Simulated scan of single mutants.
Amino acid sequence: MALTDADVQKQIKHMMAFIEQEAKEKVEEIEAKADEEFNIEKGRLVQTQRVKMMEYFEKKEKQIEQHKKIQMSNLRNQARLKVLKARDDMIVDLLNVARQRLAEIAKNPATYSKLLEGLLLQGFYQLLEPKVIIRCRQQDVEVIQAALHKIIPVYKEAVKRNIDVKIDPERHLPSNICGGVELYNDNGKIKVSNTLESRLELIAHQMMPEIREKLFGPNPNRKFMD
Rank of each mutant, 00 (worst) to 15 (best):
153 P>A: 09
196 L>R: 02
43 G>H: 10
129 E>K: 15
180 G>Y: 04
140 D>I: 03
183 L>R: 00
195 T>F: 00
128 L>V: 02
127 L>I: 12
66 Q>C: 03
146 A>V: 05
112 Y>A: 01
69 K>N: 05
192 V>G: 02
63 Q>H: 10
126 Q>V: 11
59 K>C: 10
163 I>W: 08
179 G>F: 03
160 K>E: 09
141 V>L: 12
200 L>C: 04
66 Q>W: 09
222 R>H: 03
129 E>Q: 14
16 M>A: 08
33 K>H: 14
125 Y>T: 02
91 I>N: 07
83 V>I: 14
144 I>A: 00
176 N>S: 13
63 Q>N: 13
215 L>P: 03
177 I>T: 01
47 Q>S: 11
67 H>E: 15
41 E>T: 15
107 K>F: 01
76 R>S: 10
114 K>C: 01
226 D>I: 02
30 I>P: 01
187 N>Y: 08
24 K>M: 08
49 Q>F: 04
74 N>I: 11
122 Q>S: 14
85 K>G: 06
108 N>G: 01
226 D>K: 12
70 I>E: 14
194 N>S: 11
45 L>A: 04
87 R>C: 08
43 G>Y: 09
134 I>M: 13
208 M>K: 03
122 Q>K: 14
72 M>A: 15
109 P>H: 11
78 Q>L: 15
27 V>A: 11
158 A>V: 10
191 K>L: 10
192 V>L: 05
223 K>Q: 09
14 H>D: 15
54 M>Q: 13
114 K>W: 00
123 G>P: 03
207 M>C: 04
120 L>E: 07
79 A>V: 09
213 E>Q: 15
126 Q>F: 07
23 A>T: 10
37 E>L: 15
16 M>N: 09
12 I>Q: 13
85 K>W: 01
104 E>A: 13
15 M>E: 03
59 K>N: 15
52 K>Q: 14
155 Y>V: 09
81 L>S: 12
124 F>N: 06
63 Q>A: 14
79 A>I: 11
109 P>N: 08
151 I>N: 02
170 E>R: 02
82 K>W: 00
121 L>K: 09
74 N>S: 08
170 E>H: 06
8 V>G: 02
135 R>Q: 13
107 K>I: 00
124 F>K: 11
63 Q>E: 15
147 A>I: 08
148 L>R: 11
128 L>S: 11
37 E>F: 12
205 H>A: 13
174 P>E: 03
162 N>H: 07
162 N>V: 04
9 Q>I: 08
67 H>C: 04
102 L>D: 12
151 I>T: 02
71 Q>V: 08
211 I>N: 04
118 G>H: 00
132 V>S: 04
72 M>N: 10
154 V>K: 01
170 E>K: 04
112 Y>M: 02
114 K>S: 13
144 I>Y: 07
38 F>W: 14
1 M>N: 07
15 M>C: 06
55 E>R: 00
149 H>M: 08
42 K>R: 13
175 S>V: 12
97 V>T: 07
15 M>Q: 13
12 I>E: 01
205 H>Y: 06
202 L>N: 07
195 T>L: 04
35 D>Q: 13
105 I>P: 02
216 F>V: 06
20 E>F: 01
